[in-house]
Design a binder for these strands. Sequence first.
DNA 1: CAGACGACATTTTTT
DNA 2: ATGTCGTCTG
Length: 701
Amino acid sequence: MGTRKYIIKTQDCPTSEINQEHLNLKKYTSELNPEQFNAVSTTEGYVLVIAGAGTGKTKTLTYRVSYLIELGIPAWQILLLTFTRRAAQEMMTRAAALGQASCANIQGGTFHAFAHKILRQYAHHIGLNENFTMLDQPDAADVIDLVRTELGFNKKEKRFPKKKTLLQIISAARNKDLPIELILEASYPHFLDYAQEIDTLKKSYDAYKRANHLLDFDDLLFELYRLLTQYPEQGHQITSQLRYIMVDEYQDTNLIQARIVGELAKVHQNLMVVGDDAQSIYSFRGANYKNILDFPAQHPDCTIIKLETNYRSTQQILDLTNVLINQAKEKFAKKLISASPVGSELPAIVSAPNEQFQSQFIVQRILECREEGTPLRDIAVLMRNSRDSFGLELELGKANIPYVKYGGQKIVEAAHIKDFVAYLRVLNNPSDIISWNRILQLLDGVGPKTAGALIEWIKQSPTPYQLNQANVSQKYLSSLKALSALFDALNQPDYPLSSISDSLFKYYHPLMKITYPDDFPKREKDMENFLSLIQNYTSLTDLLSDMALDPVDLSAMETIGMHKDEDPVVLSTIHSAKGLEWHTVFLINTLDGILPSRYAVLEPSQLDEELRLMYVALTRAKMELYITYPIVSKHHRDDNFMSNPSRFISNLPEHLYDRLWLVMESSHTRQPGIDGPTAKKQLSDKKPTEMIKNPSDDLPF
DNA sequence: CAGACGACATTTTTT
DNA sequence: ATGTCGTCTG
């Protein structure tokens, strides 16, 4: 079957043909460098843009959107797929700011959000229930738990993997298109004995989801692909609208995403993918940077454009990062040249006696930066693991420095928030049995079995909210009555969302106190934040899909509200820092075993990914960069042990960085048995920590 | 069958 | 420091 372009001229956009008369070319030629302009103005055909860190990738995409709009392309014919919705939002706003307001109306978002939107629209065509329920990760793990219990796999003499691990294994198998066994071999060799069982579990999990109209994150992508490939008519309806497609962060797409992109672009064949193979950091999620390398082979006639001028970082920072990334086993054919003025300081590698000193150093340095005129929001502390910043967070709190944290557990994934949302979900869709299960088990005396029985009743009942009509023992009748009454009150037409959440809170608040007695106050605070966040929504459906697909912004809530007067410092996992930049960047806990993660050191390809991760972290810095590590770090058994700095930094040429040793105030706090650097520094002592630059060079490292 | 208690292992990273 | 699993009791 041959494919040809046939452009439909629609009624509502007579100017659909490309038309240069409104194009203000000068805006583009004067504000973009030649390569960027080339990327912006090459609108037709397949285009691959290799964009190194800080080379104006976002700017290029932004201008390209604006350019297309000025050419008269209707916004709805443009699709911009990004990695986070924050990124899409930012690009669309910035594009609109260039003059054409309709830039804000292009189709944009993450693969998952896009898939979700399309599937809601086409569900009935492809045998899906239109009211399908989205499972986020904890939900999906709960379903797996349920299925596992049904299969009796929890009663093995040797330990069976936990539900979360099972989900990870199953998801990895799908996303990488490999059998369970190979996934186990590569990443979970200790569970290899259970390959058979996990495979069975996977099938049951799929069946369960299908039977109950549940979709997990992976399903969104696979179902979209199924729609595009097996339903030509509907597929064509979708793809024929997508005249220009841009995909950001292409190095972090996985197999199914690459296939989807291929399908989406089939009709018009105007596809630009942008990425940097040196910044691929999501292979754990099935991302494959080979997607980007294979692109030219798949589209032999594609245009390749390289952006190599870095507008972000000083040459000193780039010199260091260029050398760093060169340690990779698989090489990258790129070298970044800075366009920034030279003359600033070298990046610093900071060695702290222990984790607390590391935190104190950062606090002190942040305060100094603020004195020097760098606003807090232009300072970031990055870490490999979300928990690596716990100590620092305490110190920041003591010093009264406001901060936001990105990455790690999301507020919407906390148990009490999930409880609350479960009511909303049941209200939205009475056949959402996962949420029912949650709600019912909150009642006193109701456990898995009783909940299961009630759910069976709910499934076939025409009035699922009338729980007290189910055949149950006296024991829980009164609490079920209360629950029914609640839903009766909530389930009124035109009952505003704010009233719903108020009534719900009244009902749930006492339950929360009983369920989580230990840290009730903390959870209560979360809840308040969450309730105020709900105020921004008027539609329950919108709220719920946002919660599933874009919980990122919510995670920042808890800390942000406290300080209205000053924008906070940013704490972020490296993964969540992707695409962002700051004046000053600290990378903390740069220890071997943490970055690189100790789970990655055995496998060269995984080690390379850790290296790229560090590369991403360091290239976020514009002017100042500090790489810090504690010499003594706590292991989870509470004995201290000596720790080595990351292998990635121990071989860097010395002329590329300054070394700072932090000095302790007095020697009695030192741990006995620690030799090396700390022994050297008794010189000083007024401030708790003090920096010494490049001390005598016989220091061990 | 639910809930409490104690033992145990267990760590990335995100849509 | 945490969450999860297994066991015991009412």
